[in-house]
Simulated scan of single mutants.
Amino acid sequence: MPVSLTIIPELNLVHIIYSGQVTPKELFEETQACYQRPEYKPGMAEVSDFFQVTSFEIGYDEVHEFTSRSKSTHGGVDIGTDICLVGSTKVSEPAILMYEGMIAAKEIPIRLHVLPGYPEALAVLNLPEDSLKYFPEGCHTERHLL
């Protein structure tokens, strides 16, 4: 599946792994389903992993719609939401840049962090290094950097 979401209540965090060819259908369906789960709490931080993406079939209109949905989901959070995007590649970079620009333009209370890997995400979110145990084994490749 191109989009896999896991809620990690112990860290107050949503972990998303994108892989293969990501299309708007998967992106919209999976993220909206996550926000409907009872264990999801508004304001939870998010870590989105782009290391395995081979193509992003998402253009301006889809990013515009996605940010509109983000505004309805995150807009009521007073403190803002931290979203860490790890593993940006040439494939995912255009979509990330559009998302970043639209978040700013629509004044959505999201603090977006584009980071090279998990150690940086844990640092930004002020999580201890043993937090990595809650992430899938494939996310542990940078453990030596912690």
Results as ranks from 00 to 15, higher is better:
57 E>Y: 11
124 V>F: 10
26 E>Q: 07
115 L>G: 01
61 D>Q: 12
46 E>V: 12
35 Y>I: 07
93 E>W: 08
15 H>P: 04
34 C>N: 09
86 V>N: 06
76 G>R: 13
53 V>S: 09
88 S>T: 11
83 I>P: 07
125 L>M: 04
139 C>E: 09
92 S>P: 13
12 N>E: 09
24 P>I: 03
106 K>Q: 12
29 E>G: 07
21 Q>N: 14
18 Y>L: 13
123 A>V: 03
47 V>T: 02
105 A>D: 15
138 G>Q: 03
48 S>T: 09
14 V>L: 05
108 I>V: 09
122 L>S: 01
65 E>L: 14
25 K>T: 09
79 I>F: 11
24 P>R: 08
129 E>K: 02
37 R>P: 02
111 R>F: 10
87 G>S: 10
115 L>H: 00
52 Q>V: 02
66 F>M: 10
70 S>M: 09
65 E>R: 14
82 D>Y: 07
27 L>S: 12
80 G>P: 12
13 L>R: 00
97 L>R: 11
19 S>T: 14
140 H>Y: 05
139 C>D: 06
98 M>D: 12
123 A>Q: 06
91 V>P: 02
100 E>R: 15
82 D>S: 12
40 Y>Q: 04
9 P>H: 08
79 I>E: 09
96 I>M: 08
76 G>K: 13
37 R>G: 05
70 S>W: 06
93 E>P: 10
138 G>T: 04
68 S>G: 08
98 M>H: 13
96 I>R: 04
41 K>M: 11
118 Y>S: 00
137 E>C: 01
